Simulated scan of single mutants.
Amino acid sequence: MDLTRTAYGTWNGGRYMHFGEPLSEERFVEVIQHAYKQGIRTFMTADVYGNGAADEMLGRALTGLPRESYCLIGAIGHDFYKGERAGSKGYPRFTATQTPAEYAGYVRMATEKALARCKTNKFDLLMLHNPDFIGYTSDKVWSAMDKVKDAGLTDRLGIAPGPANGFTLDMLIAFERFGPLLDWAMIILNPLEPWPGCMVLESAVKHDVNLITRVVDYGGLFHDDVKPGHQFGHHDHRTFRPAGWVEAGTAKMEQMREIARFHKLTMLQLACIWNLSQPAVKSVIPTLIQEHGDKAKSIESKVDELASLPDIKLNEDEIRHIAKIGNNKNCMELKGANRAHVGSALPDRWEITKDHELIASKWGIDPDKDIACTHKTEKVP
């Protein structure tokens, strides 16, 4: 089964990623089952979430359902088997803990263990999760991924950059080199964050790579229960966003509400439909958050909004109007290949190489202007 228009990720509910109120184990499973009952048929997990716990919970939630009735996405890449966690930076990529000769063995092992935790024998899509520079460029990495597909452990292959935004030139290189192997890729995209994701859309079309978009909700704002003055928990990942992001985003959303009302959409649905109106975008996987407070929507109601997404497209004027309102170009430091980075490659940031320069020129991208941060921001205290 291929991906459907709407998808559910195991980072939802704050249990394995710090967004809002973490769900109890029982409710976490029940929300996944609720999503299935409401018609969502694509479910994504990553082996590093809870060191395999998210895989297990998803497997538990889907037990007993006809396997052909849903699409299962797995993601591997962080080596929590052999690597040591570096605090908030997480576990190293397997390309840092294994030699190139060991890549194939690691990918096979990680895939088989993830499948066992999910209580199944095959993924519909297996994604390389949060790759480093090697992951975007290494023939040996993608040969290893292709071997698990040949072994029948997955029907499709994909790439899921992250966790932060960027990796624009790296994605373009991956499409160019490994396009024939890639069925899907994941990018960050939403009406308040059209940049930099918009710069890989046409290349995805050219290389026949379908896109699944995450952070569709823009940190929860499109759920409409995060308002100016909202108090985030001490460990909530959103406290790392710049000061004033809620107020600025809310003001921009108000300018989009007329279009939402015209199409009888909630704001989350508008964000999803805007994404699905972009070239190559075939699926949306927003973060569903149980916010703190009595006035917060239930996560189950957010599932309902996503599940009831109507099958419509915005017209070109509406698409452009929303993009103009949400224009965020040059607003942040991006990860991946970036002119601002000098020196040895880090796990999520590295220098621009000659190959990056060539792919940038091919797609009309000026690294010094189009993927550079020119706005100074301050972290939330």
Rank of each mutant, 00 (worst) to 15 (best):
E316V: 10
S298K: 13
T4M: 07
G179V: 07
L201A: 11
A160T: 14
P194F: 14
C118E: 10
P279A: 10
T95K: 05
D225G: 04
G87Y: 13
T154L: 07
M199V: 00
P92T: 09
A104F: 02
D208E: 13
G74P: 04
V48M: 12
S283L: 11
A345N: 12
L126K: 03
Q269F: 02
P194A: 11
C373I: 14
T154C: 15
D368K: 15
R339M: 05
G336Q: 06
R241P: 00
V200N: 01
D208C: 11
K297Q: 13
F80M: 02
A360Y: 12
A323H: 08
L306T: 08
E318L: 04
R238L: 13
R339T: 13
E316T: 12
H234N: 11
E21I: 03
C198E: 15
F133R: 08
K335C: 14
E56F: 12
H223F: 02
K324M: 11
G336S: 09
L276M: 10
H34A: 15
K82P: 00
M1I: 13
P66W: 04
R241M: 15
I76Y: 03
K335I: 01
H34I: 14
E378V: 15
I325D: 00
T120R: 03
G83P: 05
E30H: 14
V200K: 00
N12R: 06
R85N: 11
K376H: 15
G83L: 03
V31H: 08
N315S: 07
A280Q: 03
S301N: 07
D368S: 14
T154E: 06
G152R: 04
W184P: 01
L192V: 08
T10S: 08
C272K: 08
P191M: 07
L72D: 02
I73R: 00
L125M: 09
T137I: 07
K89S: 14
L125D: 01
L58Y: 09
K140H: 12
V205N: 03
V246P: 02
V31N: 04
S298L: 13
A160K: 08
D2I: 06
D150I: 00
H237K: 13
I76F: 04
I352F: 07
M199I: 02
P279D: 03
F167I: 00
D311G: 09
H237Y: 13
H341E: 05
I322C: 06
I285H: 01
I319T: 10
K252C: 05
A243D: 05
C71Y: 06
R41G: 03
G229P: 11
D317A: 13
Y81S: 09
